[in-house]
Design a protein around this nucleic acid. Structure first.
Lengths: 336, 336
DNA sequence: ATGAAAGCGCTAACAC
DNA sequence: GTGTTAGCGCTTTCAT
């Protein structure tokens, strides 16, 4: 029957009830040494009787540690978080944070206000650590984060620079896998629709495509730059069809774009995979349900979240973890 | 050129720099009255020069307000948050919180530890308010939340009781809409697959189905209880087919289940919507891409998040908002 | 209008 | 092992 839900129970009350000094009580709570077993038990009992829970704020003020880390998504578009990708990351992050005493603050830094806030967190240590996702190449926050003395780990890598601490999926390797598969199945006129080239994932996947074709000695010039969106994928496919009507395969930088591209291909009367093989990237749920089901590259998103959290914890503990690149794998379905 | 990223700048430093007392500086920061224009400006200047940002923790301790609210998902399954539904809610919540000084803490209360933590938040006011989502009927947290003196707003309603403050989608009305539509298009042997009956959404949608059939004077006994999952939907459909082979329509309590059900129907050789019309609920992205595209009931999820946040803000401000039920609408596609 | 002083609840030196 | 003491950085009476 712990207690009424009324006022906060303080350490002093616990100490008094247990008949010990406040410092003794404090020591017990943080199980520090130098307390006799007798007192220890007395305090424990008092804690139970009173239903004492330390005041996190007061503790934070005294220890100069906030007790919370931030998961930040920086983007100009408030809707990005709608991408199932982030929910998965969040689940992963949460799963390791749950083992600690740290709270998870979600910062959708989408408006100017949001960005400013994140910047302040970074500058004035309003959190014990920050996980930063999905940076566009020229996002000023990236540099601010990198320079901050708050521990920061990046999720994914911005296009223009390599942060000190990050965890990323092996985008390049995955793209290469996908393209090699296209080569292996006899395709010779392989095009690509890239993602945004100011995002690391966009450029890395494009490189993977180039890698594979270079090794195979095939022409890698059938490329159109996309923007990761379904409509963008459709437009890109139209352009590709116009410029390279002879193509017999296309590696697309994201499933969303691939879906748009497949629609355009079908409208143009090309069969999939008969006339044109298609491979996407990300393995979103939808990929299983397209017509035909979409071959794609799958990345361990929850692991990414977990590893980000672990790396941040290590950083906070004063260690110097090395960046991590998580493996991707090809999921072959009917579209290729 | 605000400042180095070094140590925290304190109010005292600002005060000294501005040549005023700390209390004066504090008043300016919180733009309280009783400060001369001259001092006011001096302080402002000092703030800019020094790049002062108040220490949130210290402020929280002094004001007894945390400066953060919690968005909590209570569930036994860590993966629920993976449901795009919650990401949308989060985006909605964030959009209104962004206008305030409040942080958003994400609590995936999925393990025992998580639940305990949420319970402590509720009991010992570790947050200024809590938004609680997706409660199963017998979740003890629901009652704890309702009894807590921390402001709490529920997202959706548990099956067994009606919280004081909540915002929900009009599940019953939407289900009725869907079923009426089935009736209007000439179906007469209309079955249903329900969601979990220990969740408010499950029971409410079932009631809506009953409502519509009662008005139409049709038999409402073709019912199987599902669990909101795709496989569950498939199993339920099999059972339905076995028990009521004559059915010519089915209202399914969620799109996920509907997808499973459609698969089973097709496997059983029934055409959709020729032999059997199908309507789902939620309007997930996938619904647009099934074969045939799935008719469904759409709910304004981001609005739900927004309204939850608004209601919580009102509660924190000491007002007594009334519960909100958000309208749903039928999205007719090819499956019905 | 203004400043002094007393906390908010906790931790961490420090002396015993 | 134990208790005393001084903060952490801010807000807020309360005199002036």
């Amino acid at each position: 029957m712990t207690d009424q839900l009324k006022r906060q129970v303080t350490l002093d009350e616990v100490a008094e009830r247990a008949g010990v000094s406040r410092s003794a009580a404090s020591r017990v709570i943080n199980n520090a040494p130098h307390v006799s077993k007798a007192k220890r038990d007395a305090v424990q009992r008092a804690v139970n009787d009173l239903g004492y829970v330390p005041n996190a704020t007061a503790r934070a003020l005294a220890t100069q540690q906030v007790g919370a880390v931030v998961l930040a998504i920086s983007s100009d578009n408030p809707q990005v978080f709608t991408d199932p990708f982030f929910a998965d990351v969040a689940v992963g992050v949460n799963s390791v944070l749950e083992e600690t005493e740290l709270e998870l603050i979600l910062q959708l830094a989408t408006s100017t206000r949001g960005q400013t806030r994140l910047e302040q967190v970074l500058r004035t240590r309003q959190a014990d650590g920050v996980m930063l996702m999905s940076m566009h190449g020229d996002d000023p926050l990236a540099q601010i984060a990198e320079d901050s003395d708050v521990p920061v780990v990046f999720g994914g890598t911005p296009a223009n620079f390599e942060p000190r601490y990050y965890v990323d999926a092996d985008n390049r390797g995955g793209a290469r896998l996908a393209t090699e598969h296209l080569v292996a199945t006899g395709r010779t006129r392989i095009a690509t629709i890239t993602g945004r080239m100011d995002e690391g994932a966009g450029t890395a996947r494009y490189r993977g495509y180039q890698d594979a074709l270079a090794v195979a000695g095939l022409d890698a010039s059938r490329v159109v730059y996309g923007d990761f969106s379904e409509e963008g994928g459709g437009r890109a496919m139209e352009q590709l069809l116009a410029e390279h009507p002879d193509l017999d395969a296309v590696f697309v930088g994201s499933d969303q774009m691939a879906i748009g591209a497949m629609r355009v291909l079908k409208d143009a009367g090309r069969t999939i995979p008969g006339d044109v093989a298609v491979v996407g990237f990300n393995d979103v749920v939808l990929a299983r349900h397209t017509e035909p089901p979409l071959s794609t590259v799958s990345q361990p998103i929850q692991s990414l979240g977990r590893e980000m959290a672990r790396m941040l914890l290590a950083l906070i503990a004063g260690e110097s973890p090395t960046p991590l690149i998580l493996p991707t794998r090809l999921v072959r379905r009917a579209s290729s």
